[in-house]
Amino acid sequence: MTLLAINALCKNFGGLKALSDVSFAVERGSIHGLMGANGAGKTTLFSIIAGNTKPTSGRVFFDGDPIQGRRPDTICRLGIARTFQIVRPFPGLSVRRNVETAILYGRQEHVGTADAEREADRILAEIGLADAADKPASTLTLSGRKRLEVARALGTGPKLLMLDEVMAGLTPTEVTEMMQTIRRVKEANDLTVLIIEHVVSALSDLSDRITVLHHGVKIAEGTAREIAENKDVQSAYFGEDDDAGSDDDV
């Protein structure tokens, strides 16, 4: 059963082809990894799926319906939640209020403010931020802010959770914790997860399937083992290192 289908997606920024003719499908209930060097187009893909960016051409199907080009808030309410690579919590609001707001607006059904507060506390406990609930989000550590991103995304009650490098910059212990958290919340909330990660071992470990992008083109797809053995991936991803210094993808 396919939950999300990407169909011949293209995105040009001026003359730059950020994505060309990318297609793949994400199975319901799976963890699907997205791999690729900086500038491969991973985050652009996330932005298009979430509605933050409009595609140049191509289609995105969610639960069988085309959603490309719709507004981010509409897409969110359909059941797609994303986190940002460069975290963007609401810095002046408390951690609880961050999640509460997502619950109030991100779901299809109407939630009262009292219920939202209770639900926020439940999610914060699930994600391991209960102790920080009353602190302003700006006072959290990087690891805390990454967790808050996930908590806020969960608050919107998604079917599909898109995680953009939630482990980047964390210590090895924190990475392990985050991986456990991801698995836990996925099972507990019956989610499908699409995840971008630079920590390749973590990605291989988590993902049922991995899609590899290189310069905006899909060059491989398969299980972690298949990807590790793929010649194209080896030469593109590990061999040449021509774009190591390029800008972060948009």
């Binding site: 507004r71 808030d73 309410r77 609001l93 707001t101 607006y105 403010t113 806020r152």
Partner: peptide
């Protein structure tokens, strides 16, 4: 105190993040 106000608060803090969590900014 309202839901409306919570939405406006979020817009003040970060408009892009606000629309991404479902707020019709």
């Amino acid at each position: 105190r309202s839901r409306f106000g919570r939405g406006l608060d979020a817009i003040r803090e970060d408009e892009t993040a606000a629309e991404t969590i479902g707020i019709p900014v």
